[in-house]
Amino acid sequence: TRVETATETAWISLVTALHLVLGLSAVLGLLLLRKQFPAHYRRLRHALW
């Protein structure tokens, strides 16, 4: 049972790390898009919101 708990903890930390990386890359991508293609960014924002 101890090994299972350790594996679960590892999976949870892995998933958390993946979510963090995905969130950060999404934010960075949006910032880059905003900087380089303001028109595209505006259109995207209108489409999303």
Results as ranks from 00 to 15, higher is better:
T16V: 14
L33K: 06
L30A: 10
K35W: 13
R43P: 03
E8A: 03
L31D: 01
F37I: 15
H19M: 13
L32W: 06
L48N: 01
V3L: 03
R2Q: 10
L44G: 02
A47D: 08
S25G: 12
A39C: 15
L28F: 13
R43Q: 14
V21I: 08
A39Q: 09
A10F: 10
L20W: 15
L20P: 07
V27N: 03
G23Q: 00
L20N: 01
G29V: 12
T7R: 09
F37L: 15
R45P: 05
R43K: 05
R2S: 09
T16G: 09
I12L: 05
G23N: 04
R42C: 04
L33E: 00
T1C: 04
V15G: 06
T5W: 02
Y41V: 14
A6V: 04
L22T: 08
L18C: 10
A47P: 04
R2T: 14
G29N: 00
E4L: 05
P38N: 14
L30T: 04
E4A: 01
L30Q: 04
V21E: 03
T9M: 06
H46F: 09
L24V: 07
G23F: 08
S13M: 10
R45T: 09
A17V: 09
P38A: 15
A10G: 10
T5E: 06
V21C: 06
V15E: 09
W49V: 07
A26F: 06
A47C: 09
L31T: 11
L33D: 01
T5S: 03
I12M: 15
H19G: 14
L48S: 05
E8C: 01
L30H: 05
A10H: 14
H40S: 04
T5A: 04
A6K: 13
W11H: 08
T7W: 06
T16F: 08
T7I: 08
S13R: 04
L20M: 04
S25W: 03
R43N: 06
W11L: 13
S13I: 11
V3F: 01
H40G: 12
T7C: 02
R2I: 12
L24H: 02
R2L: 12
V21K: 01
A26G: 10
L44K: 02
V27F: 12
L24D: 09
I12S: 05
W11A: 09
S25K: 01
H19D: 00
V27C: 09
R43W: 09
R2E: 09
L24I: 07
A39K: 12
L28M: 10
R42T: 07
T5K: 02
V3P: 00
L30C: 12
Q36D: 11
S13E: 03
E4C: 02
L31M: 11
I12E: 02
R34M: 11
I12N: 04
Y41Q: 09
V15M: 05
L20K: 01
L48Q: 06
P38C: 15
L14C: 05
I12P: 10
T16C: 12
L24Y: 00
R43L: 04
R2H: 09
P38E: 14
L30I: 10
L14F: 11
R43C: 08
R34H: 05
T1D: 03
W11M: 05
L48W: 10
K35R: 12
W11G: 09
Q36R: 15
Y41A: 11
V27Q: 04
L24K: 00
L20Q: 02
V15S: 06
A26Y: 00
R43D: 03
V27L: 11
R2C: 11
A6R: 07
R34E: 01
S13K: 13
A6G: 14
I12D: 00
R42Q: 09
V3H: 00
R43S: 10
A47W: 09
H46Y: 06
T5M: 10
A17C: 11
S13D: 08
R34A: 12
R34N: 08
S25V: 11
L28Y: 11
I12A: 06
L18K: 04
A47G: 04
A6C: 05
E8T: 10
W11V: 11
H19E: 02
E8H: 14
S13Y: 11
A26L: 14
V15Y: 06
H40Q: 15
V21R: 00
